[in-house]
Structure formats: structure tokens, C-alpha cells
Simulated scan of single mutants.
Amino acid sequence: MKILLYLEGENFLRKSGIGRAILHQKRALDIAGVDYTTDPHDDFDIAHINTYGIKSLMLIFRAKRMGKKVICHGHSTMEDFRNSFVGSNVLAPLVKKYLTFLYSQADMIITPTDYSKKLIASYGVKAPIVAISNGIDLSKYKKSTVKELAFKQHFDIKDGEKVVMCAALYFKRKGIDDFVAVAKRMPDVRFIWFGETNLWTVPGWVRRLVKKNHPSNAEFPGYIKGDIYEGAMTASDAFFFPSHEETEGIVVLEALASDQNVVARDIPVYAGWLDNSAATLVKTNDDFVSALSDTISGKIDKRDRGYQVAESRSIENISTLLVAAYTRLLNQQ
């Protein structure tokens, strides 16, 4: 069995959750000892398509002509396209039609959660849909003094200084306006937003929010990976994720794997795998301020249960589920 893992527009998507997801797929197949390629001109048995562009669609058609099985990964929905780029809300219904057409070409769809499975099924897609988490590499997010020092030195974090972090693109969907509003109400805490988006692709108010319309304790350092980012995950006082819509939320898994307290918006995607025993899920800015204050002060500590959730979605566990899905598909006549 040989799998083609395909990611169109890698340079554009490497900073996104989809970019992280394909890295997790590679790691999962390495663990399982399953051969894979990223070159669509190689031989393969299953094409596992992670993207939605014209090249992805053409590859699906070519694979089908060759008699190969095709999996489309349901990373995206109309719902999580809204409130992102300029014009996204106008284009959302067209995106839904296109995704429905593309997903309908697949022999199987893999999507990260039961929530995204229900959304895709509601579009009228008839292909089998399997919910398998994007997974998390637990070893990568273990507490490290070296990584924490790299984070603290990079941001000049003083002893006793309180830090709340987030990681996301510059989208309204990600709750960037609420992140700034909450930071404004907690001036003694540093709020650091990891991640970036080309500012000319997002609405003007988001651009201005990132450039100047935020309090001095809110920081937007851009896309940072490696030791600094991983050190921030373990050394911060809380991970704050006010996103309105996700198909899973890989950064939430990263925070849980970092043994970090998570404060997030209570949205449907978490149903069935993340609840208030493992993270603090609330809905309003008042609740965010209260939850973050209680977390920073030590009144709330859900790290042990949160880490157990990350363990349940480890790359090792996901590897087994992925291989089972591939095998089931190959055995279908």
C-alpha cells in the first residue's frame, strides 16, 4: 500500500492548520510503516487530497481515470470559510457548491471531527465520511527549559510577568477582535497572538487592528515556529482561543499536549471530545476575562484532564485509525 499525500499551494498553506495536518499525516504513516509520496507523478494506490484548488481537482480526475482510490480530506467547510478573507461572506455559498462537488468525487472523505462530518453530510455528499482527528505529536510539545528560555528571551518576558497566548490567522472567524477587546480589559497581562495572514487579503478593520488599533499589552509578532512557539505553549499562563468556527482546531490540541490551560469559545466543534472538565469553554468576553483571570491566579487548573484529551488524539492513535481507513477503502470493490 502506497499513499499519495497531496497539498496544493504548500507555501501559502504551511502556516495554516492544513499545513500542520499534512505533517501529522506523514508522521502517522511513518509510525505505521506505510509507504507514501508527495509527488503526484509517483505510483500510488490511494490519493489523499488535502486541498481544494484546480490542481487538486484535476489530480482527483486523473487518479480516478487511473483506477486509483481517492480520499478528500474535509479540512474546510463553507462555515469556516466565512469571516476570513475579503469577500469571503459573499463567496461562501459558491464555496459550498464547489466543496460539495469536489467532495462528491471522492471514494471516502476523512474529516477531523463528528461536527465537520455532520456539516459535510448536510451538503448532500454521498461518499462515506470518516471522522479522524488531525492528531498531535505529544513528544514535540513536552515542557523544555531550553524552549521556554528561547521564548522568554525573544519576547523579553520578565520574572512574574503574566502571558496569555493565541495562535491563529488574522481572521474575524478566529475571534481576533475579541482577543484585542479582552486584552484591553486585562492591561497587566501580555497577550501574544502567534500567526499571520497577508494583511491585504483581510478586511481593513482587521488590518488596522493588527497594525495600530490595539492596546500596548496586545502583540502581533507574526508567524513564529520551532522552539520559541513551543516554549510559549508551555511557559504561558493560558492559551486563549476565541475562534467562532473550526473543523477541529489543531492549535487547541497543541496547547493541551503542552500541558497548558485552555480557555476557548464554546462552539459545536468541541462536542464529544473536549468539555469543561478539560478546558474552560465560555461564550462572552465577560466570561473570557473571568476565566483567564481565574486561570492565571491558579483558581482554575484543568491541565491534567486536558493532557488526557491530547493523549487520546496522539499521532500513534491516529496512525492506527488512518491505516484502518486506507485498508478498508482498498478492500472495497
Rank of each mutant, 00 (worst) to 15 (best):
V125T: 02
V125F: 01
V125H: 03
K126G: 00
K126C: 00
K126S: 08
A127E: 01
A127T: 06
A127F: 02
A127G: 07
A127W: 05
I129W: 03
I129N: 03
V130Q: 11
V130T: 14
A131D: 12
A131V: 01
A131W: 01
I132D: 12
I132V: 13
I132Y: 05
I132K: 06
I132S: 13
I132H: 04
I132R: 11
S133E: 09
S133Y: 13
S133I: 12
S133N: 09
S133A: 11
N134I: 01
N134D: 01
N134E: 08
G135F: 00
G135S: 03
G135M: 03
I136K: 12
D137G: 01
D137N: 07
D137E: 06
D137P: 02
L138Y: 00
L138W: 00
L138C: 06
L138N: 00
S139L: 11
S139Y: 04
K140T: 10
Y141A: 04
Y141F: 15
Y141P: 02
Y141R: 02
K142L: 09
K142D: 05
K143L: 04
K143C: 04
K143I: 08
S144D: 06
S144R: 02
S144E: 03
T145Q: 05
T145V: 02
V146T: 13
V146A: 08
V146E: 14
V146L: 10
K147C: 12
K147F: 14
K147M: 11
K147H: 08
L149S: 13
L149I: 09
A150D: 14
A150M: 13
A150V: 10
A150R: 14
F151D: 04
F151T: 06
F151R: 10
F151W: 12
F151C: 09
K152E: 12
K152G: 02
K152W: 01
K152V: 01
Q153G: 06
Q153N: 14
Q153D: 13
Q153W: 04
H154M: 15
H154D: 12
F155C: 09
F155H: 05
D156H: 12
D156S: 14
D156E: 14
I157A: 11
I157E: 09
I157D: 11
I157S: 11
I157G: 12
I157H: 11
K158P: 09
K158A: 15
K158N: 09
K158C: 05
K158S: 10
D159I: 09
D159N: 12
G160I: 05
G160P: 08
E161P: 11
E161I: 06
E161N: 10
K162A: 03
K162F: 01
K162T: 05
K162E: 10
V163T: 15
V163F: 12
V164P: 10
V164W: 03
M165R: 00
M165I: 15
M165K: 00
C166K: 07
C166H: 14
C166L: 14
C166S: 15
C166I: 06
A167Y: 08
A167L: 08
A167K: 07
A167R: 10
A167P: 01
A168P: 01
A168T: 13
A168I: 12
A168W: 10
L169V: 13
L169T: 15
L169A: 15
L169P: 04
Y170T: 08
Y170V: 06
Y170C: 08
Y170I: 02
Y170E: 05
Y170F: 14
Y170R: 10
